[in-house]
């Protein structure tokens, strides 16, 4: 038996909004620790991972591990039927269930909606992400700043270079109409309301596709801050963490490399 109840639908709605433009379908792996998934986009440029830890749920029961193959567009359609303050309960049989049940209940518990989502058999490749990567540079910034930088730059072109030196990050773009760049310095005071922190072991300069950096802005409502981790010649890791360590959405983006 798998049973998981979120107090408010907002949490799962935001997480799905952050991944559904990149992934069409994925296996939601349920274990005693929580709900997680990982999937590549169709061109295999980006790997998206998501975890909702068991503590994110008001009720969480997973008697044995199960994998639910879900079409992201379908689950999003069903979750549109939940008001943001409605609770969401997901129920599935752990013995080869062919559907999962979604129950939405309003705050006064006098309106209860039931939906069934058909599950799919998805044959997906699980990739090994190196743990505790020793990144050359880590930058943390308010997620609203992330959105502004990459929505602005990706309008100019799709080749965005991130260069991080001591205390400064430079984001630049080259496009058909021209080019642009933006420098972001580490904020001086720890009391600053919207801090930018930059940790550099070694300066790094890498190029990434702007279209993806812009797509990741869909995760901005999840988290007040975002962390970007870079190592020369390796994928960029971007993390949006849910409050109270309830989980995260992480993107790993393959770089553009000068051949």
């Amino acid at each position: 038996m798998f049973e998981a109840k979120l107090t408010e639908s907002t949490t799962i709605k935001r997480v799905l909004d952050a991944i559904k433009d990149l992934i069409q379908q994925a296996n939601f792996d349920c274990s005693a620790d929580g709900l997680s998934l990982q999937a590549m986009d169709t061109p295999h440029v980006c790997l998206t991972t998501m975890t909702l830890r068991s503590q994110a749920f008001e009720v969480y029961r997973c008697d044995r591990p199960l994998s639910m193959g879900i079409n992201l567009s379908s689950i999003s359609k069903i979750l549109k039927c939940a008001a943001s303050k409605d609770s969401v309960k997901i129920v599935a049989d752990d013995e080869g269930a062919d559907c999962a049940e979604f129950i939405f209940e309003n705050e006064s518990a006098d309106r209860i909606a039931h939906f069934e989502l058909k599950l799919m058999d998805i044959d997906s490749e699980h990739l090994s992400i190196p743990e505790d990567s020793d990144y050359q540079a880590i930058i943390s910034m308010p997620s609203a700043e992330y959105r502004r930088i990459f929505s602005d730059l990706s309008i100019i072109g799709d080749t965005i270079t991130i260069e991080i030196n001591k205390n400064t990050a430079c984001f630049s773009v080259e496009g058909d109409i021209g080019n642009g760049s933006l420098n972001l310095a580490q904020t001086d005071s720890a009391d600053e309301k919207n801090p930018v922190t930059i940790n550099v072991k070694e300066p790094v300069k890498m190029t990434f596709p702007g279209k993806y950096l812009n797509t990741f802005t869909k995760a901005v409502p999840i988290s007040e801050f975002v962390t970007l981790c870079l190592t020369d010649g390796n994928p960029l890791a971007i993390e949006f963490s849910l409050p109270d360590e309830a989980g995260f959405v992480r993107y790993f983006l393959a770089p553009k490399i000068d051949q």
Partner: peptide
């Protein structure tokens, strides 16, 4: 020129 790499060139299957 600059070429886009693929994520599965970096992370291998289990």
């Amino acid at each position: 020129g600059v070429q886009q790499t693929r994520i599965d060139e970096f992370f291998k299957p289990h």
